[in-house]
């Protein structure tokens, strides 16, 4: 028997699909912009797969549950499971996605025991980083590297995406160095995120997931400020989908 199990993470910016086999090994991974019709995107990603069970997560999960009669799990549980797959001893997960950020504490039994989520605004999320990179004329992929090359930091006080953008514009007008502004933006996000991490889980390594984890400056500043090791999964943005796929497999197993 060669059954497969899928996890689909319907996020605000991108939708991710991971398919695992009965042993939990990743068979396929796909990704697409969520766009304006999340269910059409989901259908396209799922095309050609014949999975025994599909588990949806992400903000589009409830829509998926209705449209495909699938099962759902929250992003919190999915990310925790995905992080555990990448790093079996995981106790703290930091996930920074397109529109929210969250910190998850995992107990010794491997289950989530508390979490905190910032979802009130774009401050400190992938969206914030994207807008700021664009304002400074950087591609999102190079934003972190450029910031790491700054000679000194600039204090940025606004955390609101709209206000920070105008603060950046005025710093540019004052002739400040682009890389320094970039570093200042990273520092301000990291200070916020570090406070959230401190409230939920105070010690040990941190598994960093979500697209923002790919940013080397974010990782370096976080490690420095918290004095904790930051562990980066091979594909941090797939942690939620992988976790959902594994939960689909496991729910089958235990039924």
């Amino acid at each position: 028997m060669n059954e497969e199990f899928a996890g689909i993470d319907i996020g605000s910016r991108t939708t991710k699909l991971v398919v695992v086999d009965a042993a939990g090994a990743v068979q396929r991974r796909r990704q697409a912009d969520t766009g304006f019709e999340p269910m059409a995107t989901a259908e396209k990603l799922l095309a050609g797969t014949s999975c025994a069970r599909v588990m949806a997560t992400g903000y589009g999960r409830n829509l998926f549950e209705i449209a495909f009669a699938g099962r759902t799990v929250t992003e919190i549980k999915a990310h925790a499971r995905g992080a555990l797959a990448f790093f079996p001893g995981t106790r703290t997960v930091l996930d920074i996605g397109g529109q929210d950020s969250k910190v998850i504490a995992i107990g010794d039994n491997g289950r989530v025991h508390r979490f905190e989520m910032n979802d009130r605004c774009a401050a400190g999320t992938g969206k914030f980083m994207e807008v700021m990179a664009r304002t400074l004329g950087y591609a999102i992929e190079e934003f972190g590297d450029e910031a790491l090359h700054a000679d000194s930091d600039i204090a940025i006080s606004s955390m609101c995406t709209v206000f920070a953008e105008s603060e950046v514009t005025s710093l540019i007008a004052k002739g400040r160095e682009r890389r320094e502004i970039a570093l200042g933006l990273h520092s301000s996000v990291v200070r916020r995120v570090a406070a959230m991490v401190g409230r939920v889980a105070t010690a040990g390594d941190i598994v960093f997931t979500g697209g923002v984890a790919k940013n080397p400056c974010m990782r370096a500043l976080l490690a420095q400020l918290l004095g904790r090791r930051i562990l980066l999964p091979a594909e941090p943005q797939l942690a939620g989908a992988l976790g959902a796929a594994l939960l689909a497999l496991e729910s089958e197993k235990y039924q």
């Binding site: 903000y59 409830n62 992003e75 919190i76 929210d100 989530v112 508390r114 979490f115």
Partner: peptide
């Protein structure tokens, strides 16, 4: 929507 996600995660715990 966000409250719903948090409540569902609370029930998972």
């Amino acid at each position: 929507g966000q409250i719903r996600t948090k409540i569902e995660a609370l029930f998972e715990i």
